[in-house]
Amino acid sequence: MPLIPKTDGGSIHWTLLREKIIEILIYISGFSAIIFVFSIFAFIFKEASGFVFSHETDWSFFFFNAAWQPLPEESATYGAFSMIIGTISVTLVAMLIAVPFGLGLAVLVSEFCSPKIKETLKIVIELLAAIPSVVWGFVGLKLMNYVLVNFFGAQVGSNLFNGGIVLALMSLPIIVSIAEDAFKAVPDSYREAAEALGATKWQVVYKVLFPAAKNGLLAAVLLGVGRAVGETMAVLMCTGHNLNNPFSSEFPFLNIFDPIRTLTASIAAELGEAPRGSEHWQALFALGLLLFAIIFVINLTADLVVRGIKQEES
C-alpha cells in the first residue's frame, strides 16, 4: 500500500508560514473591537479634555443648569440639563409605548400564532428595523406633524410625543427580537408541564414564561432604551429641537406636546457651526462623552443580565 507522498519540504514550509500569517490576522481582527471601543473613548475624551479639565467648568452647572448658550462666545454658558431631561423624557414616552407593544408582539410571535403568521410577522419586524432613521425623521416631520396639529390639537407638531412615537416604532424591532429569544430560551418542558396541569396558554404565558424569561425581557427593554437614547436623526427632525423641560408639577406631570431637545440632536445640530477646538466644540464632545458613558452602562447592565441567565441555565 503506497503511503501518501509527503509534499516536499519547501512547499510545506510555505503552507505553514501562510497559515501562521492568516492566524495572526485573525487574532488582530479579533482584538479590533476592543481597540475601536477604546479609541472611540480615547479620541472623544481627547477632544473634550479642554472642557473637562478647565477650571472654569462647573460640573453642577453642566448637569443641573438649563442655559446652553454657546453664543456670544465671551459670555457662553454650557448647561446640559434641558438636553438630559429631553433625552430622558423622549426615551420614557417611547418606552411607555414600545415596551407593552414589543413584549406583546414577542409573546404573539413565540407562543400564539401559526408558523406562517409567525414568519410574516418576523419579516415585517425585520423590515421595520431596516427603515433608516432619516426616513423616520421625515415621516415625523411631514406626516406625524400634520396629524398631531390637526387631530390632536397640538400647538406645534414637532414635539415630545411625535419623537416618542417615532422612537417607539424604531426600538420596537430590537425589543421584539430580544424578548422572543428570551421566550425561546425557556425550555418546552416548562410549557408542557404547565399545560399538563391544566393551565391555559394565557396562564402559561404570565405564570410560567414571564417569570422564567424575566432577565431576557429586562435585557430587551434595556437595549430598547439604549437604542432610543442613542438615536439622532429622527429625534433631531421631529422633536422641535427646543430647550425645554416638559415635566411639570401639575397633572399629568408631562406635557407631551412640548417641543424638546436631546443630547444627540444638539451635537448633530451644532457640530457644523462650532469651530474646531473652540470651547463650544469641546463642550459638544463632552456631551458625546456623556452619551458614550450612558450607553456603556446600559449595555454593560444588559450584558450582565443576559449572562446571568446563561449561568443559571448551566
Binding site: G30, F31, A33, I34, F36, V37, S39, I40, F43, I44, K46, E47, S133, L223, G226, V229, G230, E231, T232, M233, T264, I267, A268, L271, L284, F285, G288, L291, F292, I295, F296, I298, N299, L300, A302, D303
Partner: peptide
C-alpha cells in the same frame, strides 16, 4: 472581546460621527 463587540454595536451614531471627526 464579546463585551467590546456588544458595546461597539450600541455606540450611538452621532458618537461615531464625533470619533470620525476627531480622527
Amino acid at each position: 472581546v464579546n463585551l467590546a463587540v456588544v458595546n461597539l454595536a450600541g455606540v450611538p451614531s452621532i458618537v461615531h460621527a464625533l470619533f470620525g471627526l476627531g480622527t
